[in-house]
Design a protein around this nucleic acid. Structure first.
Lengths: 140, 140
DNA sequence: GTCTCTGCAAAGCATTTGCAACTGC
DNA sequence: GCAGTTGCAAATGCTTTGCAGAGAC
């Protein structure tokens, strides 16, 4: 039968975890994490960052956000919560809304799927981009 | 000042639209659309498919689904509705739940973002994968 | 000592883009 | 006629992977 690999706490893994958790509001991309970790471990490779982020998600230490757009972001808070993403610059912040079990209840019984969870993402413009938007409204 | 390009209805564009709309429950990937369109227009290129899907989204004829996972899917129904995705095989179906304006209202006032919309996606296991799952539960 | 992890570089894969020829309108 | 569009191929950008040596336990 199959045996789960036993994960080790390497220096790389611990620094990566530390960086992702430094400010849970940040929602960094793998590349941003790489740049930050590099200040402490200059020889680390991007591949190692990706591999460790994957492991940390598996260990439920962090959360991977697969929002619209192609780049994954990582959240130092592994608990379920929602996000709001700026459609213009891609910035991601937490949405101050409590998790809603109701949503899944509403679907229950009307689908042939076994429901496991839901993902709710708000879209909008961050304050900075709202301003830019106004200035450009004259176009078209 | 800037002038919007005037789109033309080319043979390629019309066949692509036809295919995406053929069965609005399908949620095809760009590659799947390419394969289908190729039966009618064997010389079409994948790049053309991508470019046209982009234009059709812009014209609000179809909708681009950027769900979890890296592959975009296209929906022949441009109206807002929700989806349920199988976590195992990636299949996407419509979730029979009415659009909820409430969700945005709940966030209103408690964020500095200008809210534009929301995206709700359910995750679960499709009937086929539910079965496989059961059979494998003994592992670990 | 063993089995996981690392750095490096190359590969993978969805998507985008430059370009010259073509075609709706 | 001419701006928008096409096919082709190369490029892009994020992410994954193969490998041999290094390191955790």
């Amino acid at each position: 039968m199959y045996n789960k690999p036993k994960h080790r706490m390497t220096q790389q893994r611990s620094v990566i975890l530390e960086e992702v958790r430094r400010d849970t509001d940040q929602h960094l991309t793998a590349d941003e994490i790489y740049e930050r970790v590099r200040k402490q471990l200059p020889r680390i490779s991007l591949g190692t960052v990706y591999r460790n982020l994957e492991v940390l998600v598996e260990l439920d230490e962090i959360q991977k956000l697969e929002l619209s757009g192609s780049i994954s972001r990582f959240d130092g808070n592994p608990k379920g919560h929602y996000h709001i993403r700026c459609m213009r610059c891609g910035r991601v912040d937490n949405a101050p809304v409590a998790p809603m079990q109701k949503l899944e209840d509403e679907l229950y019984g009307s689908t042939v799927y076994t429901i496991i969870g839901h993902r709710l993402e708000f879209t909008g413009l961050c304050p900075k981009c709202s301003k830019t938007q106004e200035a450009e409204t004259t176009i078209v």
